[in-house]
């Protein structure tokens, strides 16, 4: 297998840096989405979390994928504060467990890690597809990645398919009535707003996909 088709720690760390950059760029948009239906701090919270992750560059950037994912998880668990802390923290923690201590992941290994992450988020948030949560981005994303993998897709293709599906999934939350979190208190009034957590999930997966499409750093 082509080494470019494996995700090692150095490449994963570049993906993490890209996530932080994209979240920083779009934090105002995420917070705006969170204002009508959430507590209006999703962009701020997630940005604070990813900035704290970046501050751990020295400790994390040279590690294997599993250790990087665990470091991201622990940092988000400590610093994000809102509901997205336990949810993204659990997501990355389960990904880390699936990645184990392998020095690199192939596309199949990465998809297995995403599957574990999605299962963790569903368990933690007790949410199912259609509840207007990040599960509505990750469920179609994981399905699309699995499908692209089965069709022989490599890392970049798998992540591109996942990112596109997550973006469509996030957009599809707009008409949904929220059944979890603060937005669920609003009932029907939560319809007409895109879910911030599904949106940030799509941003995170798109960031990974961007880096996977670039030539690996030498």
């Amino acid at each position: 297998m082509d080494t470019a088709e494996r995700l090692d720690g150095a490449r994963l760390w570049r993906m993490v840096e890209r996530m932080a950059a994209r979240v920083a760029e779009r934090r105002a948009e995420l917070t705006e989405l969170d204002q009508p239906i959430g507590d209006g701090d999703h962009g701020i919270n997630l940005h604070r979390g990813f900035q704290a992750v970046l501050a751990k560059r020295e400790a994390l950037s040279g590690q294997a994928p599993g250790a990087i994912l665990k470091g991201v998880a622990m940092t988000l668990l400590s610093t994000v504060g809102g509901a997205s802390g336990p949810l993204y923290g659990t997501f990355f923690l389960r990904m880390a467990a699936a990645a184990g201590d392998a020095p690199s992941l192939d596309a199949a290994g990465l998809v297995r890690a995403f599957e574990a992450g999605l299962a963790g988020v569903k368990e933690r948030g007790k949410a199912e597809p259609g509840d207007k949560t990040m599960v509505d981005a990750w469920t179609p994303a994981v399905a699309a990645m699995r499908e692209r993998l089965a069709a022989g897709g490599g890392l970049a293709e798998v992540l591109a398919a996942g990112a596109a599906a997550a973006e469509a999934g996030a957009q599809a939350t707009r008409p949904m009535v929220a059944r979890r979190g603060r937005a669920s208190y609003l009932g029907e009034r939560s319809a007409g707003h895109q879910d911030p957590g599904a949106t940030s999930s799509a941003i995170i997966l798109r960031a990974m996909s961007e880096v996977a499409a670039e030539a690996p750093a030498s």
Binding site: M74, L77, S78, G85, P86
Partner: peptide, 13 residues
């Protein structure tokens, strides 16, 4: 409370 002293949760703590 959150790690910055505001409203929120710090799972590690």
């Amino acid at each position: 409370g959150a790690v910055d002293g505001g409203l929120g949760v710090d799972v590690v703590r």
